[in-house]
Computed example of a mutant assay.
Amino acid sequence: MPALVRELVNTVFDNSVSTTNLLRRALVVACRLEIPELAEWLRKELNGYGENETGVPEYRRVQGQLMADTPRGLLPVRIEFSATNKFLTERFMGQSIPELIQITQISTDIYIRPQFDDEQMIIQKIFTPSGIYGHPKVKLSSLDLTRIIETVRTKVLEWALDLESKGILGENMTFTQEEKQIVQEQHYHFGNVSGSQIQIESNGSTQTQPQTSGDTASLTALIQLLDDALQQGRVTEEHRAELEAELATLQAQAKSPKPKWTIIKETASSLRGILENAVGSVLASQALPYVAALSR
């Protein structure tokens, strides 16, 4: 009878075995080795991530094309501001691997609703100025979902190969206490690691975590300042739509339980050009310090 880990490695290369069944076999190995963090990741891949759950892996981020569902059919919507376009079309796909596989088998083009806090506000501020009237949709390619599926498959392979390199094999369908002890000295991280490589730490190692928070005070103050300026008519009609679109992006991020600071930074950079070249000097002098703080 083949060793559990070697069998798992061979299964990855067997195209007749679906990624769903591969994950189930990997779950058996993780549970018998008593690795709770890995078992949790495998269960989420099999069952899906909660709709409002934090910590959906970075490899599940996709970006599509913004479309308008109009009486003339689906039409592409061109957004001039990269930060706004990114906010509207990015999505973390939290569906289970079995669901993603099923979706890829149905169609090559997938349409989803954008994650708007206030869809009517977005329609008014972005679709109306562009001359397109319709409900927003984001068009994804099945290749984006296939990439997620294949990334998960590769992560299982990398983990199994790491076990094999340490002599953890699972002969006779079980693991020895010595094998379990070796595993307990490792920490496997799958959830929030970018790219295809798994992250492995030994006990006693230290890591510096990237900063994910930003200047919420500057963000709140900038939103209030821009909103007041628009409400009081202190922005020219020529550039009003630009400012409204960028403000809508900042407002949506501020309301989000997990604001994306990279998008806020890009939006602030875009706002800098608008403020310096298109609006009154008083508003620019008031807003630019906040923009500078958010652009760092």
Rank of each mutant, 00 (worst) to 15 (best):
E246H: 13
M121A: 15
G94N: 06
Q181L: 14
H239Q: 07
G191L: 01
Q199E: 12
K125A: 09
I106F: 02
V291G: 14
A287M: 10
L74Y: 09
S141P: 01
R43E: 04
L219G: 12
A268Q: 07
E164T: 06
E276F: 01
D109W: 05
L88W: 04
S202M: 12
L225C: 11
L140V: 07
P129N: 06
A229R: 11
I200H: 04
Q115C: 08
A278Q: 03
E246M: 13
V17P: 04
I110M: 08
T249P: 05
I274E: 02
R147E: 14
L275R: 08
P57T: 08
G64E: 12
Q207G: 04
Q199W: 08
H187K: 10
D69L: 12
C31F: 00
I122G: 07
E58V: 06
Q95E: 15
R61M: 14
L38E: 10
Q124N: 10
F13K: 15
V77P: 10
E276A: 06
P36K: 10
N10A: 14
T11H: 05
E179N: 05
K255D: 14
Y290P: 02
G170Q: 04
V138Y: 12
F81N: 13
A26M: 11
V12T: 08
R72W: 02
Q251T: 07
E178Y: 00
N277H: 05
Q197K: 12
Y188D: 02
I168L: 09
I263T: 10
Q253F: 09
P136V: 06
P36W: 10
R272M: 08
Q124Y: 01
S218L: 03
V17R: 12
E238Q: 11
P36D: 08
T206K: 11
M67C: 08
S256N: 15
P289W: 09
I126D: 03
G167P: 04
A30L: 10
L243T: 00
V235R: 02
Q105W: 08
L46T: 00
G195P: 06
E164S: 11
L219E: 14
